[in-house]
């Protein structure tokens, strides 16, 4: 696998950079390697125990992997090679509703989430974690089940690139249909703005928690969805319904901000009560936070 240049690792932590790139692979590698480079080596990284094959000993190889039995029989030095085992299953749900297309800055919420999904996949692949990606549409038709194999990351990238984001639908029902597919305990990650019936959605996510999964909800919002522009007359358009409202933001800004914050505080509280990790993000947040949050959760799970 291609090694990412050291110099560019840090630059890809900047949302201005990774949101400008269309190459999800490049973004994922950059983000993950950039994030990992700042961490201490974890005991979980590279864990495996299943024998696969032998190869000739080379100078510098760890002697603990030397097959002494084979040396006794053949008088030649062979190193035992192991097939990595899957450590855990990672289920990533990505909200495909039209509201995810909100784009009042560097890119849409969906584009940001897609980059996060790719990055998580890449990281999981490096750790031999089985990663499945489920696109939450009006039914569950576009998904990749968890697997650890060569090319799995590219399948995920391909799925993301071909996906279609539009419309308004109840993703709670879609999530409900995914439940049977997540039979192995692991980490369930949801990328959504939680604009669609969030009460019901949290209940569904609570079900995963109760089934033994660790649940992380990344709530991704556009910066302007949190804080309206300072002044001016605007025609606000609902991306899902097309409904419009004309308003002077100068009058509404404070009220709006308070209302949204109140709503988010409520979400935070509910998630905490359910034992769900709720991670608020905006499209100008560095993706490193997503990686770190995942790794922390992985430690807990393991």
């Amino acid at each position: 696998m291609q090694k990412f240049p050291e110099k560019e690792k840090s630059s890809l932590q900047d949302p201005d950079v990774f949101m400008a790139l269309d190459d999800l692979e490049l973004v994922a590698k950059g983000v993950v390697e950039g994030a990992l480079s700042g961490l201490h080596r974890s005991k979980f990284i590279g864990f495996s125990n299943e024998f696969d094959s032998h190869r000739d000993y080379q100078l510098g190889d760890d002697l603990k992997h030397l097959n002494w039995n084979l040396w006794g029989k053949t008088d030649k030095l062979f190193i035992k090679q192991y097939e990595s085992d899957t450590n855990l299953s990672l289920y990533i749900f990505l909200d495909q509703s039209g509201s995810m297309l909100t784009n009042n800055g560097k890119g849409s919420k969906w584009a940001y989430a897609a980059r996060a999904v790719a990055s998580l996949c890449y990281l999981a692949m490096k750790n031999r974690d089985a990663t499945g990606v489920y696109l939450l549409e009006n039914s569950i038709k576009n998904f990749i089940p968890p697997a650890v194999k060569m090319g799995h990351f590219y399948d995920v990238v391909s799925l993301l690139q071909k996906s279609n984001v539009k419309g308004s639908f109840e993703i709670t029902e879609t999530i409900e249909s995914i439940v049977p597919l997540c039979n192995r305990r692991g980490i369930v990650v949801l990328f959504s703005d939680l604009f669609d019936n969030e009460e019901e959605l949290l209940k569904k996510m609570e079900y995963f928690k109760m089934s033994g999964h660790e649940v992380i909800i990344f709530q991704i919002l556009d910066p302007l969805e949190l804080d309206l522009p300072e002044k001016g007359e605007y025609e606000f358009v609902d991306l899902e319904t097309g409904k419009t409202i004309k308003a002077d933001v100068e009058d509404l800004r404070e009220t709006y901000k308070n209302t949204v914050n109140k709503w988010r505080e409520g979400l935070k509280k509910r998630c905490k009560n359910m034992g769900i990790d709720w991670v608020p993000m905006t499209t100008d947040t560095p993706l490193k936070d997503v990686i770190i949050e995942y790794l922390l959760k992985r430690i807990i799970h393991y």
Binding site: T102, N104, L224, Y234, E235, T255, W263
Partner: peptide, 22 residues
Amino acid sequence: NRKVQKLWLGSLRFLIEAQKSK
């Protein structure tokens, strides 16, 4: 009332709520 800019949001629910009082 005519010279306005467009702003796309994922949901207008909070805006509507804020507007009601204002």
